[in-house]
Design a protein around this nucleic acid. Sequence first.
DNA 1: GGAACGTGGATGATGTGTCAACTATTCCCG
DNA 2: CGGGAATAGTTGACACATCATCCACGTTCC
Lengths: 188, 188
Amino acid sequence: MMCQLFPYAEQVTRWLEPDQQRAWRAYVRMQGELNAHLSRQISVDSEISMADFAVLVQLTDTVDGRVRVLELARLLNWEKSRISHHVARMEKRGLVRRENCGSDGRGSFVVLTEQGRSAIEEAAPSHAETVRALVFDQLSDAEVEALREISEKIFTRLTTGECASVVARCDADDPMEVVAEESGCPEA
Amino acid sequence: MMCQLFPYAEQVTRWLEPDQQRAWRAYVRMQGELNAHLSRQISVDSEISMADFAVLVQLTDTVDGRVRVLELARLLNWEKSRISHHVARMEKRGLVRRENCGSDGRGSFVVLTEQGRSAIEEAAPSHAETVRALVFDQLSDAEVEALREISEKIFTRLTTGECASVVARCDADDPMEVVAEESGCPEA
DNA sequence: GGAACGTGGATGATGTGTCAACTATTCCCG
DNA sequence: CGGGAATAGTTGACACATCATCCACGTTCC
């Protein structure tokens, strides 16, 4: 590509090296395509979306299938208004329901319904299978390890120091573990 | 995590191995956070979004700053209705304008305006800097190489064979190169 | 020339994410 | 006890992506 954008002599921005540029392009392209593919797969194979799936996983992962709204936001690393809207939509479809919290008049629980439980039980196996087929069947053990290390390094950078302060989200100690947890569920 | 989802004896789904599970969790978490961070950064530091940026890059990358609508969709690997809606919004904000195509009565061009050009010229440097700081400053040369190879392997799997046929998008030979191109602009 | 079919593109409905208020409750401190 | 600050959660406006549908034009082939 010819970069025609910044023909300025006084350009001081540190652009990417050619190697970095190729890697970045490959990554961006891959993650966009992978996200799109996984979203499509789950919504075609079942009646729920990736976001629904994420919420349902968190609910399924508790003993009584009930989680406080902001706790859910924290677990998923979502904004509170996002979780609020999303729970409202899921409630309308019967996947969850809301219950008042007795001990705290402000709070409310999100509770898994039977319909919600069967929805995720239907969706999870093919989703896990897809992740395995698209990602891990392509990679060697060393590459899997490298993927983890690279991801952790970048994630650490994103969530420490001045970066973290920019983030307007619920600070989560364990965000976006959603698919990983289900997909990797080893003892089922 | 205790997987309480599928306590079925007849479970046949091949779940992920523990190592794969950790890698997947790290990846999902990282890419979610990185996407969010880049989107926020670009829209805070400038008047455009990541999607606007992507469109503007493609326009900037041609000699006359004009691209046919579906060509744009192909370049970005977007659906045609997505590009149509998005161009409409960008036109409303003065970043681009549409022009009829003389040689094909059905077609139309998307044309970069002066305002669009200054918008991307304002947005690009800090975006490139952010990508470099968040991603490549964290990685060794070997890791950059690994990231590229991993991404390419997965991308290849996504765009070949039965996978590709599921995709309802414009088949692009060079999709999502957007940020990479700008961020890596070496000769500016 | 014209019917059939493909292509370029727009449109409206719907679901989703973000931001900025806003309400209601609880906490804290004098 | 009273009053401000923090917390839990909702709401509305808006930007965005997807899907199905539609229309205008072009191509092909008879």
